[in-house]
Amino acid sequence: MDLAQIGIEIRNKRVQTGLLQEHLANFAGLSRVTINQLENGTLKDLGFAKLKAVMDVIGMDVATVQPAALKSALAVAALSVSTSYRDLLSPDMLSQMLRSGDAPKRYQPHLMALLDETPLPVVVKAVAEAATPEVPAKKIMKNLSRWAVEWKTCRAVW
């Protein structure tokens, strides 16, 4: 959910509770213009503390919502890193490699694409999906870091 969508929800809740923009602004310690821009989706940025103050006034909670578009990051990652290669990497194979830290030579280019080109939110979610009680996400991240150093990948975050 982005700030514009949150603004729409805030407007709906504000109207439902019978508050004017001016009231909400005063109660939250902001200007009416800021509330107006928030509700109309024209506000570029609003810090967390200010957003939380607005939401607290009208009884809304800040909750983490997983984007619906990304149901299986392992599937997305496996498909995207297999695009340029003859050998396809399945989500199960990717999961196993992430957990074990073993990368068969023929799949190293796929894994390098994962490290260098795959969007980081997809990588992080794929790591979480691959993790098990026996092989926690922290261990998988260490495997990724080791591969990045070993293969001299371009992305500096590893």
Rank of each mutant, 00 (worst) to 15 (best):
P121D: 09
P121S: 04
P121F: 11
P121A: 08
P121N: 06
P121R: 08
P121W: 11
P121V: 07
V122S: 07
V122D: 09
V122G: 05
V122M: 04
V123S: 03
V123K: 00
V123Q: 11
V124I: 15
V124T: 10
V124D: 15
V124W: 12
V124E: 15
V124P: 01
V124S: 10
K125L: 14
K125T: 12
K125Y: 09
K125G: 02
K125R: 15
A126Q: 03
A126T: 09
A126N: 08
A126C: 10
A126M: 13
A126I: 09
V127M: 10
V127I: 15
V127W: 09
V127D: 12
V127K: 05
V127A: 11
A128G: 08
A128W: 06
A128H: 13
A128D: 14
A128C: 05
A128S: 13
E129L: 10
E129W: 06
E129R: 03
E129T: 02
A130N: 04
A130D: 02
A130F: 03
A130S: 11
A130I: 09
A131C: 04
A131F: 07
A131Q: 04
A131W: 03
A131L: 07
T132W: 02
T132A: 03
T132P: 00
T132V: 02
T132L: 04
T132K: 05
T132R: 05
T132H: 02
P133Y: 01
P133C: 02
P133F: 03
P133R: 05
P133W: 03
E134V: 01
E134R: 01
E134P: 01
E134M: 01
E134N: 02
E134F: 00
E134G: 00
V135P: 02
V135N: 06
V135I: 14
P136N: 05
P136V: 12
P136Q: 07
P136Y: 06
A137I: 00
A137G: 05
A137N: 00
A137E: 02
A137C: 00
K138N: 07
K138E: 15
K138I: 11
K138A: 13
K138D: 15
K138H: 08
K139F: 11
K139M: 10
K139C: 01
I140T: 08
I140V: 08
I140M: 04
I140E: 09
I140N: 07
I140F: 07
I140P: 03
I140Y: 10
I140K: 05
M141K: 00
M141R: 00
M141C: 04
M141S: 05
M141Y: 11
K142V: 15
K142P: 00
K142S: 13
K142M: 14
N143F: 12
N143R: 09
N143H: 15
N143Q: 13
N143L: 13
N143V: 07
L144Q: 02
L144Y: 00
L144G: 00
L144T: 08
S145E: 15
S145T: 09
S145G: 15
S145W: 11
S145H: 07
R146L: 07
R146F: 11
R146C: 05
R146W: 08
R146A: 14
R146D: 10
R146Q: 04
W147M: 15
W147S: 01
A148S: 14
A148C: 13
A148M: 08
A148Q: 06
V149W: 13
V149R: 14
V149D: 13
V149T: 14
E150M: 03
E150H: 06
E150T: 13
E150Q: 12
W151H: 08
W151P: 01
W151F: 15
W151N: 08
W151M: 13
